[in-house]
Every structure is written in structure tokens, then in C-alpha cells.
Design a protein around this nucleic acid. Structure first.
Lengths: 203, 203, 203, 203
DNA sequence: TATGAATGAGAATTCATTCAT
DNA sequence: TATGAATGAATTCTCATTCAT
């Protein structure tokens, strides 16, 4: 049970997937522009390229759209990140590259990531765990590499420190989106990445 | 131009202040519980202890309530923090105590702080600058102490590093609220504070 | 029972008169600008120079204000007209002068007259007769002069024709206000008066 | 640019027309009874035979209803009048018949016409010109026949006199509605028509 | 499956009126 | 008498959701 199942009146699973891709794409654009609450289902349907009736063939409630969106963004971030992860080299190098890759992915999807973080609180209660689980998976991914660093004695950290640094890494990535109004006045992405890496692990 | 003025039909400024305190108190409770968009003006009025008509004697729009709330929370955080700041002792000690004080304040107002960060995006466009300005002031407060550390040669940081660390400090505080679902499984507040201080500046 | 009595909580009749003059003056300005329905009692109070509470010391309902206004305007029109009426000379000359005087009075109070005619329908049911009575009095005034013309054999009219012409005269005056958007493109007041007199009685 | 377009969420133009007819019919009845301002949108919806939500599928604002109503009434008056206009015979005969026809149409639609004249001032600013234009067209229709009378030397009038008489004719028609409280005590419709015709043009 | 018209509960806001001071 | 804060019914308008075609 990886995903929460969103109800659909349609049988053809392929069609469902296709339509939901359309929905997600349309909705993300709108949520970025005006937020979840200020976006109407009519707008979502229109932006997705079909009628309001059709929209409701593929979702049960408006909140389902939000879940689909958050879920999809998480998937994409994780997916892209995984593709960038090195599997060879020293752990410390792999960590650095992982952080860099993560920040780059975040930057390339900044609007989406921002939406995801800002609207998480509006998710239907039952779906929240599914989304948090994805976060937890990302935490685990990073933590694993950190653990390798420890094993290779590149870093000397307690378990707790490892946990904390992992969260700090993830938050540092998110910061790049939700504090951009302040941060980008002072740093380019490259500068930001390099300085954060230095601060996070090289000290 | 410290504050955005919120329109009121009532003349007695003392009464305005008193009623707005009631509004803020009631609204915060509701926003914590269900968020800004899911809270109705009628609920705010009721929770504040008066009728819907009276509510609108003290605000112009529902969004004004959000501004009042965010503004008040920022004020209180800053206010409380200022009271805790030491003015004597080595800069590095003052920094550490400032961070600790900041985290403690955040913790004692976690729900309020969470609301503030989550709903900022719903603020009326014209008021956003007023709220961001407060953030900027907090950044400045921290930065000043960091600058002292540099002057006293307790920390060897470039300007950019100082900027970044300042933001990291503030975000680390906020993290304690918006990632509590993950963090508190692993750390007590004390542990969290100590580890973050260590990571942020002692390395 | 010349006037409908409007309820007041105040005893001093002199004060009542004074305050009501203020109310009428303020309200007329507002009704001209935005109409009765779009004017609030608060605005009326403010424009009259006192508080909403005080306003309600001198009227019972918002509609009372409309009655006071319509009544006052009628009074003024009649009053001014009466002052201009000649009592000597041939009836036909007196008629012509009466019409001229009437049109001039209307022109000098065009906004007020327009308000009166446009808002009459919003008058409280019980007061409508009082206002219509004033109209009827004006009709009577004109009719009397017309009757004199007949007696002096300057005009050869049946009773019905006399009635009709009287109404036509009054309406021709009102027309100058409610059709000004069309009429004033083509006529100056003088032209209008002269042509209407010619059409109304010299044929 | 014959008509101001009123926004609708519905696509089927036929349906829009049908529903708007329902709206107009329902609204006219209510406006006659209680005026525009005292009629609520819910009442309009109910009287039209559908829900408040459906009403707003076919209009944007309450004021749009007023525009639809005024526009429709004007259309019907003009339409009916045109059907009655003779195209043969002497100009003076055609004029007389036009006036008669106009008065008869007005009489048969007296409530509607009254509403139209009384509520015109509440029309949204942008739509006023559209409605006045219709008035102007009616003026033009009458003026043309009067011009024919002049050409045929049945009437000896200056340009200005023609203009004025045209307006007098139209106003005499409206009078029949807005002064009915006074006029009908004295005249039957037939009497009124005949006397006005005599006064307006046979002198 | 797709469509889009219909629905109506619910939301924000207004404003005439009251009443304690 | 004068004030103005308090009230809450009433109003316009929105929008998620349904359902007949």
C-alpha cells in the first residue's frame, strides 16, 4: 500500500493514469499561481483540458487533487534525485554529491516544491501519512549515505547528530524555495550550495 | 510606517486595541485548529466573544484578521526574544544564549509560529512587506551578534557565511515547529537546541 | 393634518426643526449623489453633522428621512413659485408668467426635483398621500389660473382640456430635469421655456 | 455593439436565451411589485423557477438583471410600436396613428414601462448608454414622421419645435404611467389619447 | 466516458436600528 | 440630549459536487 487510492468512476487504469497526469499538470500550475484554496475545481478542469464532469470521473473531492499533486511532486523529486546519486566513490564524496544533486533538483522544481510545502497542511487527514512517508524515505536515503560516512570514518557523528544533520540537509533544500525572497538577494545557487555543504558537513 | 493600518469604524483607540486583542486571540486558536481558509468570519467573531457585526467594526476584511494575527505573533516573538538577550559577556556566549532563547521562545509559541509561517502566503499583497520586514529585523538582530563574534575573533566567517548562518539559525527555529512530526520523535527540546547550536556555530 | 408627523424622541420642537433642517440638507446632497437606497443612515448622520444616535432621536426610520426630504423640496418649490406669481394683469399673462416662473424654479432646483421624482416610489406607503397632495395643490394653483383664462375668454377650453394642460405644464417642468440628458443638447432654458409656453397654450 | 453582453457560465446560447427570458419575466413581476432594490436575488431566482446558483450561471451581478429587464422592455415597446406603424397615407395621418399606437402600447405595458423609467437610474454606469440609445431611437422614429409632416406642409414647424414636440410626445406616453394616480381620475385612455393628440399637434 | 447545467449550502460583508453611558 | 459601540438579520455571490443526457 504505497499510495492512497483515489476513487475513480472510470475502469480503464491506463486512462486513469493519463487523465490524472493532466490533472496534476494543470493543478500544479494553478496552485503555484494562486494556492490550493483560491483555485476552483472548474479552473482545474479547464486547465487540465476537460470538463468539470470529467474531472469528477477521476477524483472524489477537490482535496484528492491536492494529494495527487503533492504525491506526484514528491515522486518526481525522489526520482530525479535517485538518478543523480553516485554509487561509487568515497562516502563523503557521495554525500556531497547527493546534497548538491538534491539542491539542484529542488531548484529546478522550486515552484512545485514550494506548493507542496505550503499546502501540505490542507491535505485530507488520511492522506497526510502517505505524504510524510515519502519525506521519511528521503530522510532515510540521506541518512544511509551519512551512515556510510561514519562507517568510513569520514565523519565522526553520534546517531542523534546524524539524524539532525539529515533533517538539516533536507530543510536547507526547502529553504531555497520558501526563503527565496531573502536568500537570493545574497547568494547564487552555486554559492548557496557550496556554503551550505561546508556548513552542514565540513565542520 | 511601522504597521499597516487596519480600518475600523470605532473611534476609541483603546477599545480598538482591546477588541483586536480579543480578535487575535480567538483567531489564532481557530487558525491553529483549522487554518485561515477553513475558518469563517462568524467563527472568529464568536470565538472573540462578540457578534459578526461587531467584528466588522474593527476590521475591514477577513484578510485583515490574518494580518493582525501574523503581526501580533511576530511582535510577541521579537519582544520576548529581546527581553532574553544578554548585553554583556563574550559575543560567542551572547550568540549561544540568543539562539537558545530564540528556540525557547519558538517552542513556547509553537502553534502560533506555525500558523504564521503557513499562512503568510495568504496575506493581502500590500501587507506582506510589513510582515517580511519583521523577519528582516530578526535577521538583523542575529546578524549583529554574529558580527560581534567575528570582531572578537571567536568566529572566522566571511560576510556571506554570516548571512547564511543567520538564516540557518532562524530556519532551525522554525523547523522545530514545521517538522515537529519528525523531529520530536528523536529529540527533546534541550537536545535539539544543544545539537543545533553545536552544528550551527561550533564547527 | 397638513403633514405626516415623523416621530421624535426629543421634546423641544424648535430643536427638532433645526435638526431636521440639517438632516434634510445633508440627505438631499447624498440622495442626489447616490440615490436613497445607496445612501446609508450613517452617511446621513455624518453629513448632517451629528452622530447616528442623534439622527435616530429625530426620525423613526430611514424612510422618514426620504419623506422629510420630499416634503421639504415640494414645500420649497411651491413656496418659491408662489412668491413669483403675479396677481394682477390679464389671466393669460399671469399664466404665461406662472409657467415661466415654475420652469425657472425647477431649473434652479433641478437636482432636488429629480431626486424627489425618482425616489417617490420608495416613500413609506402612509406618507405617499401627503406628498401627492402637494402635487395636487400645485395642479390646483395652475388650474386656477387656467380657469381665469377661460373666464376672460383668452383660452377656449373644456374642463378636461384644462385638466390635461395643467398636467402637461407640470410634467413639462419635470421633463427639464429627468430628460436633461437629451433635451439640453438642443435647447437653452430660455428656448425651452418659450417653446413650451407656445406649444402648451398658444395654439 | 447593439447590446451590452451580460456574462454567463453556460455555453448553449439557446439555453441562455430561454433562461434569460425566465429571469426577465420573473424579475419584472417583482420589480413592479417592490422595486429593484427591495427585490432580492433569491426572490428573482425563485420567481424565475430555478435556484440561486442557476441564476448566477446566467448573470454576473444583480444589476445585470436590471439591465436585461430594461433592455427587454424597450425592445418590446419598440417592436410592438413598429408593427403598428403605417407606411402609407398622409404624413399627418401616420403621425396621429403613430402617437395613438405608441400610447396604446405603453398602456398595455404600463407596469413594465413604469419600472423601466423608475429604475433606469440604478443601472450600472456602463449599460446606461445602451438603454438611452434605445430611447434615442424611438425619438428618431417619431421625429422622422414629424419631418414628413413638415415636408408635406401639414405642419409648419422649425427644427427646434420638431425636436421638442417629439420629446413631448414620448413624455406624454410615459406620463400615462407615472402620473396615473392623477390622470386616470379624469380621463379614459381614449380621451387621453385624443386630447393629447389634439394638444400636441393640432394647434 | 464525457459533458456541462443545475444545485444549494455556505461564505463574506453590510447596515438599519438599539441602548447603555 | 448626544454619543457611538453593539447587534444580527439580511444580502449578494461562490463553488464543490451531482446527475441527466
Amino acid at each position: 500500500m504505497e499510495k492512497k487510492s483515489v476513487p475513480s468512476l472510470v475502469k480503464d487504469q491506463q486512462l486513469i493514469n493519463k487523465r490524472r497526469q493532466q490533472i496534476i499538470k494543470g493543478a500544479v500550475r494553478l496552485f503555484i499561481e494562486k494556492g490550493f484554496h483560491r483555485t476552483t475545481t472548474r479552473e482545474i478542469a479547464k486547465e487540465s483540458g476537460f470538463s468539470i464532469g470529467t474531472l469528477y470521473e477521476y477524483i472524489g473531492t477537490k482535496e484528492d487533487v491536492l494529494y495527487l499533486v503533492c504525491d506526484a511532486i514528491y515522486d518526481e523529486v525522489t526520482e530525479r534525485l535517485k538518478k543523480q546519486l553516485h554509487t561509487t566513490g568515497s562516502a563523503i564524496n557521495r554525500l556531497e554529491e547527493a546534497i548538491r544533486a538534491y539542491f539542484l533538483v529542488i531548484d529546478s522544481m522550486q515552484d512545485e516544491v514550494l506548493v507542496m510545502y505550503q499546502e501540505t497542511k490542507s491535505l485530507p487527514k488520511e492522506t497526510l501519512p502517505y505524504v510524510l512517508k515519502k519525506e521519511t524515505e528521503m530522510v532515510a536515503m540521506m541518512e544511509e549515505i551519512l551512515a556510510d560516512c561514519k562507517k568510513e570514518e569520514a565523519l565522526d557523528l553520534t546517531e542523534k547528530e546524524m539524524k539532525l544533520i539529515t533533517h538539516n540537509i533536507l530543510v536547507a533544500g526547502q529553504m531555497w524555495t520558501f526563503r527565496r525572497w531573502a536568500i537570493r538577494r545574497h547568494f547564487t545557487l552555486e554559492e548557496y550550495i557550496n556554503l551550505q555543504i561546508k556548513n552542514l558537513i565540513h565542520n
